[in-house]
Design a protein around this nucleic acid. Structure first.
Lengths: 331, 331
DNA sequence: CTGAAAGCGCTTACAG
DNA sequence: CTGAAAGCGCTTACAG
């Protein structure tokens, strides 16, 4: 393989200069810059990451930690993995993934001291995960994705779940719905809890009662979502705010099977807009995971550069109207 | 941080000896071994991976490459990620994950030359993925997970899909079913194609006709699976071999909704047994992804040690009988 | 703007 | 069985 020495020899310059060019150090003459670039290109030079890492003390690799369960619930988790990896790749940063189990004994220690990652992106929607706290108390710079923790001393990036749901509720009320039911997600998850809270808040804001009969619990997945919808049926809602798109699709299936029209008889909303589904076009909130991942990486890179933390970024939630609530919508 | 030098100084031995102890080199006296271990422990020494990597030319990190789509289709993909990471962690090996998109231009180059991984675990069920070929033609040792490629010069680990389906079919025939329908997976995937082939083979073996009306196509996911089952309903099958568990559950839902009894009127089988579902206990084939991941890692570690390849390992498929085919089964 | 030199923390022939 | 020494391929003050 070709090393920095080879490039130096071939270009007639010193290793120092070659190194500077490769690291975009401004203290290099334009001529040297061009020459080095050309030679490096011609020789197909690629810096040795281990050597660089040893010299600088940084690896150019970050860790992504996520409970493996989040890969199950809905498309969200997979999007996080994909988009964090994508955003990192764009910056030449590598990603090591730890999919933690429920009780990751020793895992925290292992992650913190593995000695290969510079910092951490942590995705945990669970309301209380002791291992997250342990990780945050460790020595690695870290940023939380998709969670608004109770702790205010940690950096996080999240979208505004409550604003999104508030917009959906306003929309439902504006089209004349008054018996608005909800199917929640797993309430031990931060995002599900936030969305439910926003549902309750919106009812109050519009002077509507919070009817327990109109609240059904599910787990973000279709089978449970369908079950919840069947339970709701007896109470004749004229709208259903589902905690996510999967659940919304399941609900629509049940409604149609029961001979009801969507949206004429019952309007249905979802949350996420992560994948084009076979079902009816959904009025929903766009959960832009790619944007979240990009922001998270941005925050982490800042921390790695020594910028002061913590940094908090709340991304706006965009509502999209489609035919599950608006009969005339093009979808 | 504490380095190897610190351990050497503190233990009164040379760096060479300390290094040997840490690498389990047999040429060390028992006394030295104990002394070094104690001191290292007391000081909380952790080897610097970059330094070790630079000295040895190996990183102790492998790459996992998988099309991001496989995370969507069914629980299988997520299991691969989880189990490969788990198996690697047990051996102190790190994993970098690349979730490739459909057309990963530049990605192959990036993966091959990123300079940080020693070898690759590649998971691709697509029948033809040009990037897989490119990766295999690269300079990194690699093992394929869950695929039986056309190329015979590459190492792979897979379970015996055909044997699994054959066993399911024998079982269905043995309980008297003759109008056995199937709901396939996406036929451009190797696993789906294998399972379908085994279905056809089994029919022939039992002298049963392959009736096109009894074949419906789906994509491993519930909505399409339900659709396929509805299409099948008109042709009155007495059994349904679904391409995976998700599809089987969807099929059962449709059957029950149509007023049919499972298994009395229609027996249903799945494939995977990856997660405990809320639905009816399924007769299925156990797809032991953890075992596959373990074998794959074993093969890769062997290749990294310089053992000659390619290595091929076909794992047996275990069939489990439950109440979706056997009314008396305990589930 | 450029280069010689030291150093990052390990491993591994080589000599004893 | 043990140690002194060279080397892995970079970066970065330091001097010019």
């Amino acid at each position: 393989v070709v090393t920095l020495d080879d490039v130096a020899r071939e270009s007639g310059l010193s290793r120092s200069t070659v190194s500077r060019v490769l690291n975009d150090d401004p203290r290099v003459s334009p001529e040297a810059r061009v020459r080095v670039r050309d030679v490096a290109q011609a020789l197909g030079y690629r810096p040795n990451r281990a050597a660089r890492s040893l010299a600088t003390g940084r690896s150019g690799v970050i860790g992504l930690v996520m409970p493996v369960m989040e890969l199950w619930d809905d498309p969200y988790g997979a999007h996080v993995v994909q988009d964090v990896c994508g955003a990192a790749a764009e910056q030449g940063i590598g990603v090591m993934v730890w999919l933690t189990r429920a009780a990751p004994k020793g895992a925290v220690e292992e992650i913190l001291r593995n000695g290969i990652v510079d910092g951490l992106v942590i995705s945990s929607l669970a309301q209380k995960d002791s291992w997250v706290e342990e990780l945050l108390d460790g020595s690695l710079p870290a940023v939380l994705v998709g969670r608004h923790p109770t702790r205010v001393d940690v950096s996080w990036v999240d979208i505004d779940h409550r604003a999104g749901v508030a917009a959906l509720m306003d929309h439902l009320v504006s089209i004349g719905r008054r018996r608005i039911a909800t199917i929640t997600g797993p309430m031990d998850r931060h995002d599900a809890a936030e969305r439910y809270r926003a549902y309750a808040d919106a009812l109050a804001r519009h002077g509507l009662p919070l009817d327990p009969d109109l609240v059904a619990h599910a787990d973000f997945r279709q089978p449970q979502g369908a079950e919840a919808m069947r339970a709701l049926l007896a109470h004749r809602p004229d709208a259903v705010l589902a905690a996510n798109d999967e659940t919304a699709h399941a609900a629509i299936g049940v409604l149609l099977a029961a001979g009801l029209r969507v949206p004429e008889d019952v309007a249905v909303t979802g949350f996420d807009d992560l994948r084009r589904s076979a079902g009816m076009p959904l009025t929903t909130v766009r959960h832009d995971v790619a944007a979240i991942a990009g922001e998270a990486l941005d925050v982490l890179v800042g921390l790695l550069r020594g910028e002061p933390g913590p940094e908090h970024r709340m991304l706006p939630a965009t509502i999209v109207l489609r035919s599950s609530t608006v009969a005339t919508a093009t979808g």
